[in-house]
Design a protein around this nucleic acid. Sequence first.
DNA 1: AGATTGACCAGAT
DNA 2: TATCTGGCCAATC
Length: 105
Amino acid sequence: MPSVDRVKFYRDVYCVVKEIPEGKVISYGGIARLTGWPGHSRMVGKALSQIPGEWKIPSHRVVNSQGRLVPHWSGQRDLLEAEGVYFKSNGYVDMKRSMWKWEVE
DNA sequence: AGATTGACCAGAT
DNA sequence: TATCTGGCCAATC
């Protein structure tokens, strides 16, 4: 995968994330599939970790498949709760109810 | 060129 | 819920 494609991949990832409606979340693997690069979930995480501030990407709506929030991020839960995302009592996002599109293709 | 790393995933314990 | 295992794959030593 040429480095040029990496840029495109990043842009696609950001594009998808921007489409996530309020009160919904999606997993890294889900984004990977939607962008046409299944199996690149780790790259999605990489891309999100390098979001330029100017892009204003709502990366807080991206969680891992277990509904676990992003490590070393504080305040993410508050942001999500403010948008109406359902949380389970354990502090995880309730994917069953808040997952965007159920990630079906 | 080889080893390590990471905002992952699924399953098991 | 936390931790582990094995798999994954590009980025980064």
